[in-house]
Design a protein around this nucleic acid. Structure first.
Length: 489
RNA sequence: GCCGCUAUCGUCUAAUGGUUAGGACGCCAGGUUUUCAUCCUGGUAAUCGGAGUUCGAUUCUCCGUAGCGGCACCA
């Protein structure tokens, strides 16, 4: 069966999440791909909320979704654009507000002879399913109500017997479609179930709602996760039943955890909100874009515009990638280093509340290239506090010296420090002064500077000592040295 | 059980009917540095297995195997 695509129409893609919890990186990656594709083609990106399962709905999910998209810079052209605002002429964009539309379409299929009423109780279906499973048969509706005569149907309907509407499926032949990622997919019709389209509560199932909406909203490219591939033949059948033109399907590989199972809460942080405190949105987007897609060059770091320019469905991989937080961390550190210090300071402003902007800029550039995650910052600048923290005094002693020699070094540092005028208290001046002293007096830089650095930071590993002193100021620096001296004796 | 998809270093991936199978992360080593990190240099490591087609297969075909996904009045 050849498939026709809406290839010549302006591109319209959608992200259609269910409000069943906080969106996680897998979901948002689907959104990113759909968005990238629409931007690449100067198309329209639509947000639609698929809330047809009342039981699973979770309060606040829509806001979380909106929030995650906004944070990642995925802007919405049409559909739900904020908590209570929609944009576009194809609304409403929340499925629970479109019940009548689905109802009419389901009835239309019944009239067309492509769907049928089913009065089977869920108890009967459960028994049926268990029986089939015990016989190692695929679980499947047995078609009982398919054979009901029309009068009987009318009678049951009139008596308000609970019922659903199921789609009919041919029992011979096969259904196939051309997936933009996976190629031609063919499934025997025998293995397609008589899918429920309209539930007994009057809500549609995903299958009916998404097909109807995608058509009505004129979606040209359905970009969604791989788990939908097996039910796509049902959707193709529905398009045919309605006589609608088929969109392009593109099924994305699924992101797996390190144990190769589908990424989930078991794998640690997965909700987008959890990434906000650690990662730059551009870094996450860059990383996510490379999970299952590759521009086929050796470039790794891509700006948003480059991503848009390079993106294409044909470059999407077929196999499922594993989420590797180490590479994300590396990418993030690269993005952090590329940031202007004042921009980074702005992003870290929560930890810089009592610091003026000049000083904040200095602090930030001091630690910028040691920062992997934004949340590491707080611990990194701990030494800027009071010199009350105690540390092991042996840390002050460099490899080649003993304690008395170290004390002597601290004395020298103290003297040099005292001698530097407050108005010349600046990183480069400090560096030059200390370096000059070492050269003139034939003292190893390491011998003098190691104890000083530990004294000033209280840390074995820390940023550049002169940068730290600059930020600390003369008075505090002297206090730190005195404190170290006390510890040593 | 049935249906479908997939298979290159540990991970993300590139490439090709003939290559020393390339890059990046990680890891290891060396250098720079007052320490660590950054940065620079180098190293480690892969075509799932078996047949077939072919002069030649990692690439094409088939069969295994493994992984993943689906099989709801959930999406």
């Amino acid at each position: 069966m050849p498939t026709e695509h809406k290839q010549n129409k302006p591109v319209r893609t959608r992200f259609a999440p269910s409000p069943t919890g906080a969106p996680h990186v897998g979901n948002i990656r689907t959104a990113l791909f759909a968005w990238l594709f629409s931007r690449h083609n100067k198309g329209t990106f639509i947000l639609r909320i698929e809330d047809t399962d009342q039981a699973r709905e979770q309060e606040g999910s829509v806001d979380a979704i909106l929030d995650a998209l906004a944070w990642l810079g995925i802007d919405i052209d049409e559909g739900l654009v904020s908590h209570d605002k929609e944009k576009g002429d194809n609304g409403p964009y929340t499925q629970s507000k479109r019940l009548k539309i689905y109802n009419n379409h389901a009835k239309q299929l019944v009239d067309l002879g492509k769907a049928f009423y089913c009065f089977c109780s869920s108890e009967r279906l459960t028994v049926l399913r268990e029986l089939q499973q015990s016989r190692k048969e695929p679980p499947r509706y047995d078609g009982r109500c398919l054979r009901l005569d029309p009068e009987e149907v009318e009678k049951q309907l009139a008596a308000n017997v609970p019922h659903v509407i199921r789609m009919k499926v041919p029992q011979t032949g096969e259904t196939s479609f051309n997936d933009a990622v996976k190629g031609i997919i063919t499934i025997p019709n025998q293995s397609i179930d008589y899918q429920v389209l309209l539930k007994s509560d009057g809500f549609p199932t995903y299958h009916l709602a998404s097909v109807v909406d995608d058509h009505l909203m004129e979606i040209t490219h359905i970009i969604r996760a791989d788990e939908w591939l097996p039910s796509t033949p049902k959707h193709v059948l529905l398009y045919h039943y309605f006589g609608w033109e088929l969109p392009v399907f593109a099924h994305l590989p699924i992101i797996l955890g390190t144990d190769k199972s589908k990424l989930s809460k078991r794998h640690g942080a997965v909700s987008v909100a959890e990434y906000k405190k650690d990662y730059l949105p551009d870094a996450l987007a860059n990383y996510l874009a490379f999970l299952g897609w590759n521009p086929k060059t050796e470039q790794e770091i891509f700006s948003r515009d480059e991503l848009i320019q390079q993106f294409g469905l044909e470059k999407i991989n077929k196999n499922n990638p594993i989420f590797d937080v180490k590479k994300l961390n590396w990418l993030n550190s690269q993005y952090i280093q590329a940031l202007a210090p004042e921009v980074l300071a702005q992003k870290l402003s929560n930890d810089l509340k009592d610091v003026d902007s000049v000083k904040a800029g200095k602090i930030v550039s001091l630690v910028q290239d040691r920062l992997e995650k934004l949340s590491d910052f707080k611990a990194m600048i701990d030494f800027l506090g009071e010199p009350t923290h105690t540390y092991d005094a042996t840390m002050l002693v460099p490899k080649k010296l003993d304690r008395p020699q170290t004390a002597h070094m601290l004395e020298i540092s103290s003297k040099i420090t005292e001698g530097i005028n407050e108005e010349h208290w600046e990183e480069e001046t400090l560096r030059q002064t200390f370096f000059a002293y070492c050269e003139q007096n034939d003292i190893g830089k390491g011998d003098l500077l190691w104890p000083l650095r530990v004294a000033v930071t209280g840390l074995k590993n820390s940023p550049d000592v002169f940068g730290v002193m600059d930020i600390l100021g003369k008075k505090k620096t002297i206090e730190h040295i005195a404190h170290a001296d006390k510890l040593l004796s």
